[in-house]
């Protein structure tokens, strides 16, 4: 037989057989589909962004249906999807809305420059040059990497400090990964007290670098009646689960770096 024809036939035949076997196998061994997960998957936006922490929309739907994952982890879908999935699962779809929060209060009037940076207008570039131009090595650089990362225009830089408009924030967490100083965290709507500083230096050094930096004095820890504040590595941290928003720590803070949202109810 013609060797070329034989080669084509053999390869084609093998491919055909393999394809047939696969087709038959996929029919014979079809895994019964999970209807609940399928229905949930329909409700999800289907962008497979992974913000929920699962491998994709299908993975999240499966986790909700079979492994008791919480509803409302889907940030692109937001409240509408949380409600719809909650209805289907028979649980409350009311979820905490997460918004971005900048843990730095050191705008231009409170800190000082250690150098004049004339480079690329980017936090990522500036931070590689001796940690940026401010005396504080932990603070916001103000070149707005987070601003360009935000697709919803929720972040603005004023006086060299990034500020988040919570009403515009959709909780996509893109700014969190864009910030080279790791200053942005996601905070739930129940968050009351927030320490607007990320400086882990010892007190005197922080004091010299920034007028509103946490010096780790621990006054907030002493006044807190709910054991919500702790100072770790010279930086106070408020546990949102325990904080009731009484505001005593904010009054006690000599550096005024604790901000309160809302009030105790």
């Amino acid at each position: 037989m013609n060797p070329i024809l034989l080669a084509v036939l053999l390869l084609g035949g093998l491919g055909l057989i393999a394809g047939l076997i696969l087709a038959i196998a996929s029919i014979l061994m079809a895994v019964p589909k999970d209807e609940k997960a399928e229905a949930l998957c329909e409700l999800l936006p289907g962008v497979n962004c992974g913000a929920c922490g699962y491998s994709g929309c299908a993975g999240y739907a499966d986790a909700m249906a079979n492994h008791g994952a919480k509803v409302g982890l889907c940030s692109p879908g937001g409240e509408a999807v949380a409600k719809a999935t909650g209805e289907l699962l028979g649980v409350s779809g009311d979820v905490e809305r997460l918004t971005a929060l900048v843990r730095c209060g050191g705008c231009e009037e409170f800190t000082a420059r250690k150098l004049e940076y004339h480079g690329l207008e980017s936090c990522r570039a500036a931070t590689q040059f001796y940690g940026g131009n401010w005396l504080c090595n932990y603070g916001c650089l103000g070149y707005g990497d987070c601003v360009s990362a935000c697709e919803y225009g929720a972040i603005t830089v004023e006086n060299g400090l990034a500020r988040v408009d919570a009403s515009l924030c959709r909780g996509c967490t893109k700014c969190v990964s864009a910030c080279p100083k790791k200053l942005i965290v996601m905070a739930g709507s129940a968050t009351r007290g927030v320490v607007r500083c990320s400086n882990h230096d010892k007190g005197p050094k922080t004091h010299a670098a920034c007028k509103v930096g946490c010096i780790g004095c621990g006054k907030c820890v002493k006044v807190c009646e709910h054991d919500a504040v702790q100072v770790v590595n010279c930086l106070a941290n408020i546990d949102p689960e325990k904080c009731i928003g009484c505001g005593k720590c904010a009054e006690a803070c000599p550096k005024h770096c604790i901000t309160m949202f809302g009030s105790a109810t």
Binding site: G19, I21, L22, A25, S26, M29
Partner: peptide, 12 residues
């Protein structure tokens, strides 16, 4: 083809 087949069999 084999890997696909193994995947189907394992899944089942």
């Amino acid at each position: 083809a084999l890997v696909q087949l193994v995947e189907i069999v394992l899944r089942r």
